[in-house]
Design a protein around this nucleic acid. Structure first.
Length: 654
RNA sequence: GCUGCUGUAGCUCAGUGGUAGAGCGCGUCAUUGGUAAUGACGAGGUCGGGAGUUCAAUUCUCCCCAGCAGCACCA
């Protein structure tokens, strides 16, 4: 019988008979290891403990405390859930059940969708299956056998999955007792290894293969951990994250609201609009300094321009269309005539075509390029109702938009400059952990490959020079050019695209923009569509969640509250308050007939960063007791000094 | 838009086939209190909208609307 040499992580080598399994090796080393083992890594690849090893290999025995264990626990839990569901709800078809961050889901096809109340029942059944502790055993089937088996069982989705697997792929199924599932593996030794630290979290609809034209399946989300302590910690983290929800904080802090008469559009309250204005002014300073010129263009534009720009063809279903007709003033009868649809206008969903119109006024020389045209453009997009989400996804939005008109040879420099500007802004605003993606040429595209090569290379060079790590997304670019996307995460880990840089060779062509080149002839400029924040709405939403409402001083709607302890200090409080205002700070004076405890509590809840508490002593000495959010310290300083210090700290980062 | 869940006072929520309750908030009065809730009293609700079943609907049924989660789409 031939032998295999097994090399362990500490470089020790043991020799076994060929075909030895990971479990046998673990048992050979120690009983306790065999008990704790959940999988092996053979030459870097995760594998089942039960599979025979036929040749020399590096081997690592994985236990529950390995990083990969969580992945396996979750995946195995998904299998257990699928079995439980099929047992409880016969006729339900299984489809796919991958791991996701912090958990897993499994999509099921069933005529009657699941409700939330089913989760507890399924969970109970799952615990029985775990308790039963059947071994996960692997089998390799022939393709035809597998397809026939699943079709006979009425598992049409599984059969479809197998049919679509590449020819060379082995068809593997994993059994746990009577139940089995098509699966690539690996799995832990038995269902008992799943443990008890799992919880089903929610049900939701999801399209088969992510295609809205295909069937809607029911997805069940769950989470699973090594032990109850980890599970509890995760559930607590979810709860904490919910408290940071910008919609909740927006209401509590009196920043903004939404109502059905204008769904998807923000009613900014004075405090919220203070944040908005500060952000806008900050970006304006940044843009001014970076050589941008600000413009303002119409919101309501004839659809003839949208036809020319291509939006009417490609973006119409996202637009709000308005008839260009004087509505009837009669109380009864139709408001609009039958002919109303003949003359249409649309609320702009983007600013680009309007910017091209400004570019086209007069004659532009190559010497004028690049032209960086900025607008805090108020755009409307007719988003699907289900897409709307607080400030993150709205129907009326203001972009910190700009279009850079330049020559092709300026693309790289302009892109680099933009990436650096964006990085500086994000750093100012406290985002260092952004995710950057580069969306590359899609199948259907305009422009020849040579231009695309240059465009993509230009963006890669820009990202490199800006020192940003990024992920490439093939096929995801816009039809007119590649784009860089900057993503930020909200409190519960949902990722939102904020900044973007898009190269466009198409729109200048469609709208016939040109400049006069060195050679005296007409040339097409290239357009760079770019936004740093993306939209003020979304970015402010992200800011609120990122800071849990405790915004940096320069953005805080109220920077300082002067709170008096007794009415004897009211006059002095007035004086300090006036001095704060004089220093340009956003201040409030609280001389209500309330106890200081009450005032401190209330302003703390309102997330006011600084309170100046004044009583008889302070009035006497000309001082203030400074109380900062989340701090029990109460240093006492002369009020002029305290204000000077605070004014310094309230300066915007740029 | 699709699937599921939810919709009671300004907010957070309880509750019932016989037209409603708590806490916070709000108002009035008293209280002048040293860093996260002073006390008393009071006002406030066509129980999301419409239809149906019923002697009677906030409660049961259906439709609509909105919100939430996810999917699809996207800044």
């Amino acid at each position: 019988m031939s032998e295999v040499n097994i090399t362990f992580p500490d470089n020790s080598v043991r020799t076994y008979g060929a075909g030895v399994s990971g479990m046998e090796i673990a048992t050979d080393i120690s009983k306790s290891l065999a008990k704790a083992a959940i999988a092996v890594r053979i030459d870097g690849e995760l594998s089942d403990l039960s599979l025979p090893i036929e040749s020399d290999a590096k081997l690592e025995i994985l236990k529950r405390d390995n990083e990969e264990a969580l992945e396996m626990i979750r995946h195995d839990t998904a299998h257990v859930m699928a079995e439980a569901v099929q047992k409880l709800f016969p006729g339900t078809q299984v489809t796919i059940g991958p791991n996701i961050e912090n958990g897993f889901y499994y999509d099921f096809a069933r005529n009657e969708p699941f409700g939330t109340e089913d989760l507890a029942v399924i969970e109970k059944e799952m615990r029985k299956i775990v308790e039963r502790g059947d071994a996960f055993t692997r089998e390799v089937w022939s393709r035809d056998e597998a397809i026939k088996f699943f079709k006979d069982k009425g598992e049409m989705y599984k059969a479809e999955l197998i049919e679509d697997l590449p020819e060379e792929e082995e068809i593997k199924v994993y059994k746990q007792g009577e139940w089995l599932d098509l699966c690539r593996g690996p799995h832990m030794p038995s269902t008992r290894h799943v443990g008890g630290a799992f919880k089903l979290l929610k049900v939701a609809g999801a399209y088969w293969r992510g295609d809205s034209k295909k069937a809607m399946l029911t997805r069940i989300y769950g989470t699973a951990w090594r032990d109850d302590k980890e599970l509890k910690a995760y559930l607590l983290q979810l709860e904490e994250a919910e408290k940071r929800d910008h919609r909740k904080l927006g209401a509590e802090m009196d920043l903004f609201h939404f109502q059905h008469e204008a769904q998807g559009s923000v009613f900014w309250h004075p405090k919220g609009f203070t944040i908005y204005n500060q952000m806008e002014q900050y970006i304006r300073r940044r843009l001014d300094n970076a050589g941008y010129q600000e413009v303002k263009t119409p919101m309501l534009i004839d659809n003839k321009l949208w036809e020319k720009s291509g939006h009417w063809g490609k973006f119409r279903e996202n637009m709000f269309v308005v008839p260009d007709e004087v509505p009837s003033g009669e109380d009864d009868g139709p408001v609009l005539s039958d002919k109303a649809f003949e003359k249409l206008m649309a609320l702009k969903p983007m600013n680009c075509p309007a910017h091209v119109q400004i570019f086209k006024q007069g004659i532009t020389s190559y010497r004028d390029l690049p032209i960086r045209m900025a607008e805090f453009g108020c755009c409307h997009r007719n988003e699907a109702h289900g897409a709307l989400h607080g400030l993150m996804r709205v129907r009326q939005m203001t972009q910190d938009d700009a279009h850079i008109f330049c020559r092709e040879d300026q693309i790289t420099d302009e892109s680099v400059a933009f990436c650096e500007l964006l990085r500086n802004v994000y750093t100012d605003l406290g985002f260092d952990d952004l995710v950057v993606k580069l969306a590359l040429r899609p199948e259907v595209r305009a422009g020849d490959d040579d231009i695309w090569d240059r465009a993509e290379e230009g963006l890669r060079a820009a990202l490199k020079q800006a020192g940003l790590d990024y992920e490439e997304l093939p096929d995801e670019g816009a039809f007119y050019g590649p784009k860089i996307e900057y993503h930020l995460k909200d409190a519960i880990g949902r990722s939102w695209q904020c900044g973007t840089l898009q190269l466009d060779f198409v729109l200048p062509e469609r709208l016939d923009a040109h400049y006069i080149g060195e050679d005296g002839g007409k040339h097409r400029p290239v357009m760079l569509h770019r936004a740093i924040l993306g939209t003020l709405e979304r970015f402010i939403g992200i800011m609120i969640e990122n800071h849990a409402g405790k915004l940096p001083l320069w953005l805080a709607p109220v920077q300082c509250v002067v709170a008096t302890i007794t009415s004897d200090a009211d006059a002095y409080g007035q004086k300090v308050f006036a001095a704060l205002q004089e220093a340009g700070l956003r201040a409030e004076l609280d001389i209500r007939n309330e106890k200081i405890n009450y005032k401190v509590r209330e302003h703390s809840h309102a997330k006011v960063p600084v309170m100046f508490v004044v009583g008889a002593r302070e009035a006497e000495d000309g001082t203030v007791a400074i109380r900062r959010m989340d701090s029990k310290d109460q240093p006492v300083e002369p009020f002029e000094k305290a204000i000077e210090l605070l004014a310094n700290q309230c300066k915007p980062p740029y």
